[in-house]
Design a protein around this nucleic acid. Sequence first.
DNA 1: CAAGATTGATCAGTCAATCTTG
DNA 2: CAAGATTGACTGATCAATCTTG
Lengths: 175, 175
Amino acid sequence: LAAELVAMLNNRRVARSKQQWLDEEQQQAWIALVHLMIRLPAVLDAQLRRDAEMSHFEYQILAALSMAPGRSMRMSDLATITEGSLARLSQASGRLERRGWLRRTPDPDDGRCTLAILSDAGETKVHDAAPGHVHAVREIVFASLSRTQIRQLTTTAHRVLETIERLDDAGSSPM
Amino acid sequence: LAAELVAMLNNRRVARSKQQWLDEEQQQAWIALVHLMIRLPAVLDAQLRRDAEMSHFEYQILAALSMAPGRSMRMSDLATITEGSLARLSQASGRLERRGWLRRTPDPDDGRCTLAILSDAGETKVHDAAPGHVHAVREIVFASLSRTQIRQLTTTAHRVLETIERLDDAGSSPM
DNA sequence: CAAGATTGATCAGTCAATCTTG
DNA sequence: CAAGATTGACTGATCAATCTTG
């Protein structure tokens, strides 16, 4: 495909802009990683929107709740494990609530907290959506990787995530 | 941190929802990869917004143009290498044009195409933004990885991207 | 009519208040 | 007053037309 060739040529050209600071292998890795970070979430989001009429973020919310004891969780904990802000979660929960998949109620133990509770309809929905989503993940990510590669990927991802956490902590309290 | 512990515990719980289909190692890899796909783009976007008042997508546009011959490129080619839709690129270009970093003109060779051209101000802007951005990439991604890990990451990313392309092509023309 | 590009409407995400409870 | 949560205003992305040129 002509578009593909153009893309490859241009990517090399883009890469050159970092030649002073990144070596050849790092450039290649960076280009591949940027493309992966853009394409993989997009393709998984598209799969869920097409097959289950929900975003990946909404799926994460419902999946987390369906595994939680009592199918419920505090909003702030939900936000942590879905890696989203509380504001984003609050907006998304409103949508899910309107669709009848979730309801919210103040936490009896601590009035400041809100409990998100998965409804029966929501449970059914995740249950129906899960097989197709997991199949897509298997097909796209794991089917083409060896066990060794999967282990290496995990290690590498953790290494980078730890660095992000470390820098985040340092940044939020510079003293 | 309490939040961290909650996150780890809950992540294990989420993982269990895929036990029927993904093995233990795949679950761990998937959780790590999802977190990486969420956090890494977010942190790089934040760096550019903070230090250069632009999004990562806008940076990609300006960086690609600054490396292109004549500092110009067709919109459709730009869209391909930035992995964005033409509509998104068009909107973003409007913003960049309003800020004086870019101008657009019909392609003299083919009136259907539009050429995006980087202005002097735009060139200066990328030039100023690049060192900080590359430093962040080095610090976050490459400083914590060995040369071997970097090579493995490239291979793995390409493997997954090839799978995505393959499935995309199959999906768009099922016959 | 197909391909490149743009636009307007709509939808989701972010940010800065705001409100409430302990 | 700090932490959990929500809301409204704004910004950015997506989708479905639409327009133009070859």
